[in-house]
């Protein structure tokens, strides 16, 4: 029989001890990634139980939105459809990944309160669950991505390794955002509403639909200081055969390091208390 040992001590041994246990939580949750994946897959399956198209319903509604907005913005901005449609399609798909993960991140711990209050499961498992669930959704939406890449001949110019590196960096970044919103929303229940507003506002401030024009004045500030622009740019530009902004990858790497340090620091300090927030 498998013997697992638990050693739990008092929390008053200081920051070092808390940090060691936060790292232990990280290690155990990474080893148990299979469980996070099982939970995530179960979420996807149960959300669309009884529907014929299943998760492809979102893919379908996304495709409809891509077509509508693609045609509209091609007309509005006076840009040929062949440029606009792939731009909008990739924008909407990957924006969906970023914003859904952060919004659903708020529920990561709250939803798992039953499990957290009676088992010693690592807490980060539930953060991975949210990220993996959205990754599973992305796998469905890849239909749109592949259709656009083939339909508009992007496969001739795309830089797949760079796009995958961009995706990896984006996942690392949205993971810490997910952890951060999960902790804060467990403590303060107003946060999910605020996060949702921020994401909605950011969608309009980020070139998801609209093509960024010349980088002058306000436009330059909006693009330079918008983390979501860099996230989107790191995946979309290589897929469209364009070079990402020179600052995009350094910004994402810096953001990942600082963001994880902050989020993990908060996790270290609050970890013992999170179960009582719920």
């Amino acid at each position: 029989m498998e013997i697992t040992e638990h050693m739990l001590r008092t929390g008053s041994r200081g920051f070092r001890d808390d940090l060691a246990r936060a790292i232990e939580d990280l290690r155990r949750s990474s080893q148990g990634l299979g469980l996070a994946w099982s939970l995530a897959w179960h979420d996807v399956v149960s959300r669309y139980r009884g529907s014929i198209l299943g998760p492809f319903w979102i893919t379908l509604s996304m495709a409809v939105m891509v077509l509508g907005i693609g045609f509209l913005y091609a007309e509005l901005q006076n840009i040929p459809l062949a440029t606009t449609l792939p731009f909008v399609a990739l924008g909407i798909v990957f924006w969906g990944l970023i914003s859904q993960t952060i919004i659903e991140g708020c529920e990561s711990f709250v939803q798992a309160s039953g499990m957290l209050s009676q088992t010693a499961l690592p807490m980060l498992t539930f953060v991975w669950r949210t990220v993996l669930r959205n990754l599973a959704a992305l796998l469905h939406h890849l239909v749109i991505v592949v259709a656009v890449i083939i339909g508009f001949g992007l496969w001739r110019t795309l830089n797949l390794p760079l796009a995958l590196a961009g995706l990896a960096l984006v996942l690392i970044n949205i993971s810490w955002m997910c952890l951060l919103t999960a902790i804060i929303s467990a403590r303060f229940r107003d946060i999910p509403q605020i996060v949702m507003s921020i994401m909605q506002f950011s969608m309009f401030m980020t070139p998801v639909f609209w093509q960024p024009g010349e980088r002058v004045g306000l436009m330059d500030a909006v693009l330079t200081w918008n983390p979501f622009f860099h996230m989107l740019d790191a995946i979309r530009a290589p897929l469209m055969g364009l070079a990402p902004e020179a600052s995009t990858f350094p910004v994402l790497i810096g953001m990942a390091l600082i963001g994880w340090a902050v989020a993990f620091g908060l996790f270290t300090v609050t970890r013992r208390r999170i179960v009582h927030y719920l």
């Binding site: 638990h6 008092t10 039953g114 009676q118 088992t119």
Partner: peptide, 25 residues
Amino acid sequence: SGAYEPDEGQIEVRGKIAPLLDLSL
């Protein structure tokens, strides 16, 4: 079960724990 951590003192449990606290878990 390991869900609550002590504020003071120490808990040591050796062995695989099965918490049957809530059947609907």
